[in-house]
Design a protein around this nucleic acid. Structure first.
Lengths: 180, 180
DNA sequence: ACCTGAACACCGTTCAAGT
DNA sequence: ACCTGAACACCGTTCAAGT
């Protein structure tokens, strides 16, 4: 990759991060290009879709989430492990306003650049759900899709209400999952 | 109100209803005006903001919700009454994609044309929450704002996942509220 | 009293032309 | 190999001019 291309790519990612944090993940791509000091076509050259740009932005953060998933795989307290997973992924999915909807919508959309990441997250959740149901820690009919959807709803809430309230409501949701 | 103005207003409401159902509550207002056969200025003349248009669209449906609120005011089983209220308002808030966010955001925004409706809904909820906490049917620290936020999250979910799953997750949330 | 539609500012996306 | 920016299609919102 040419040096100037690399530099443009890096600047685009940095400005996209800033703009998405300020205005949400549906913010203007023209604004991102403008702030990065490149033409709009350069943005499209590096990231053909908004989701491709989002995927690149989330890469590093996702790795941390997956490491947590690995660490929780064999935890003794399966209910607590699932709760910790849900809390971490909720925070991840609330990085930018509007991201939760994109992630939830990408789980079943194979054309989405976010699909692979969503599937990996869902599969990590799947394992934790299976262990928690086997241990009787959560409702027996719970699916990995349920957990992914609940996480998305909690992440959506984090963008709409004060953090303390969002945390409390997430606790309610997790408890609702536990109730048999 | 002049007869032609009345006719335009009615057509605008009918087409907005259709367009918002198809494309969500942030659909193009130009498309609404186009389908109603009037100029875009006519739409703005009748409804100065998108929220004003939404408010007019929701009026009838809201009345039904408030009647349910009145009916539940003195119910014996306060937990069940609150659950019924939550279910009904969730359905109401999921009428169009994107509406839940507008409603939740309008609760504390006095400049929003939806503010009055949100406050009325919140107050009806407030009474049911107070009765349910007094009876020990739900967590004692639950507020009317919590319930409104939970309803919004459930409504948001209804636009993202299949109805059966949304119903199941709403049950989880309501149970989470009940857990002491 | 109400309607029209041009005007302005803005955006998503593509692609021919440049370096 | 990559970048530029004009081009096209679309939208939100306002407001002078019409009826």
């Amino acid at each position: 990759m040419r040096a100037d291309a690399r530099r443009n790519r890096d600047r685009l990612l940095a400005e996209a991060e800033a703009v998405f944090r300020e205005r949400g993940s549906d913010a203007s791509l023209e604004a991102v290009a403008r702030r990065a000091g490149v033409a709009i076509g350069t943005l499209y050259g590096h990231f053909p879709t908004r989701k491709a740009l989002l995927e690149a932005l989330l890469r590093d953060r996702q790795d941390a989430v997956f490491r947590l998933g690995d660490r929780l795989r064999d935890a003794d307290r399966t209910g607590a492990a699932l709760a910790e997973w849900i809390t971490a992924v909720t925070e991840h999915a609330a990085t930018y306003r509007g991201l939760a909807a994109q992630l939830l919508g990408s789980l079943d959309d194979e054309t989405s650049e976010l699909n692979a990441a969503c599937r990996r997250m869902s599969e990590a959740g799947q394992h934790l759900v299976a262990r928690a149901t086997a241990a009787g820690d959560i409702r027996p009919d719970t699916t990995a899709d349920d957990v992914f959807a609940l996480i998305s709803a909690a992440a959506w809430l984090r963008d709409q209400v004060p953090p303390a309230q969002a945390d409390r409501l997430l606790t309610y949701m997790i408890d609702g999952l536990a109730r048999g």
